[in-house]
Design a protein around this nucleic acid. Sequence first.
DNA 1: GCCGTTTTCGGCCCGACTGTTTTCAGTCG
Length: 611
Amino acid sequence: MENHDIARALTELADLLEIQGASPFRVRAYRNAAAAVESLARPVRDMVEAGEDLTAIPGIGESVATQIRALLATGTLPRLEEVTREIPRSLATLTQLEGVGPKKAKVLYESLGVATIDDLERALAAGKVEDLPGFGKRTAERIAHAIEVYRRHSGRFLIHEAEAVAEHVAAYLREAEGVGRVEIAGSLRRRKETIGDVDIVTEFDGDGTPVVEHFVRYPDAQDVEAAGSTKGTITMPSGLQVDLRVVPPHSFGAALQYFTGSKEHSVALRIRAVRMGLRLNEWGVFRTPEDEAMEEDPEESGWEPEAREAAWGPRVAGEREEGVYEALGLVWIPPVLRENRGEIEAAEEGRLPELVRLEDIRGDLQMHSTWSDGKASIEEMARACLERGYAYMAITDHSQAMAMVGGLTPERAREQWREVEEVQERLPDIRIFRSAEVDILKDGALDLPDDVLEELDLVVVSVHSYFDLDRDAMTRRILRAVRHPAVDILAHPTGRLLNRRDPFDFDVEEVLHACAEEGVAVELNANPHRLDFSDVHVHRARELGVPVVISTDAHKPSGLDNMRFGVDQARRGWLTAADVLNTRSLEDFQTWMAARGAERRRVFLREGGAA
DNA sequence: GCCGTTTTCGGCCCGACTGTTTTCAGTCG
């Protein structure tokens, strides 16, 4: 059981407790515990097996620790079992509908027996929902619409899809009269691999109504969900929702911080602010008045923004995001790190990592050509790499098991090497490594014979078949491949395809330990459909000293441009340039390869070939 | 249920918007 599974169980428990009406603080405690487990680099399972104390993890106390130990031993959370004897677990899915929270879910269940989205749809059709207390005709319509949206698109959007929309909308907003700074915020700015909705913050001095009106006239918008003086929401035909916030210049930095999140990061910042005698919200950082002079209710309707802000005390920051962090005694924290995984403490102590940048990348170590399933020749790919300023590259066409895409047999591999040499002669300014993406077969053997592997400059291996092996078999399979003396890089290690295919089940921790021992690098696949390894896995690789390579897996020249998505994900995993192998100069990279080559030959000679 | 620069008890982040309320609860980010 992975950390992700434990977090999911804790979250489900929190959802159901919330519907039951449990203390909101208790619910939050379970959510915090879930977040703590989710962002933990080490497997909780290993900690339990090693007899370590889970309460050492911030957010996990005696009670949750006991629950987790039981979950690992029996496969279920005892508390979750208790709760599901009282209410059906499917109720938690109701709250995934926009506009339906725990309270409405509870009323629907207790009044109408609605337990699933299908039930709810029937109740709506029968006109039973609008008469419930706290509901109404308008609410019923909204819920019906929410079901439609849910059915149309239940997953999240991939980063490149959301980014394309966001950039068009941002450009459109910049055309509006009187608009100042326009920034994309939210999880897109944090460069998460999937995006729920797009947030855009816009600077405008005065009542924002005309900006919002311009926004909701965006030509591609399918629906307008909301339109006020500071906020608007539109939905695109794909189901992607775009939220706009319009704020005055003196609040722009605070609003950008606030709408960038993550929620966990922002909450931690606000707690910090309170301890410093400050108040942080989307309008700025305010010094809390020491005298309790303001006894009036700041919620009193009719207050002008100026008067309301006066009640919060003098503004000490808000115009620029850097200023918000400075006011809290912190250096500015890059958005990619804002997950409350230690970045605030690191900022306080001046030990934020110098994150790897796209400009640091000196080569791309996985791409395909027309020799297998690529769309461009070796020379076209090489010229495209030259255009991107790279010093080296690897042509990694598939091996023979991938027959459907023309994977290379030993004979065709040798033919291909001749073409690599010819292109190399024509293009002396880039070093082209002779390589292959060699399939890891079902039993962990490699798909090309040792005599072929030995003549490759670089051996990249990956799994493309039998994804549903059980955990033990899959772990043994990958371990065997990683321990093969010819192997240099383990590519797209978990095999996930975002929104399409789950990662296959294996012991990531054990494989990373093996990579560390063997000096094998793991690939961070930059294709936005994969982004495999995840930020947490990459972070763990760094901790264990496993080198990471960021490769695009390009199948045509334009695919090389995905490198930036991989770099962003590496940054989310706290990687510096030193942690990423393909930031090295050609000379330094070849030094790494040579060291591995010597080791490889030594083992071959001693054992007379690989096992 | 967690946790400690105010604490082993008593707190726990903050504001906007919506719809259904006649003064506010629910939801969201």
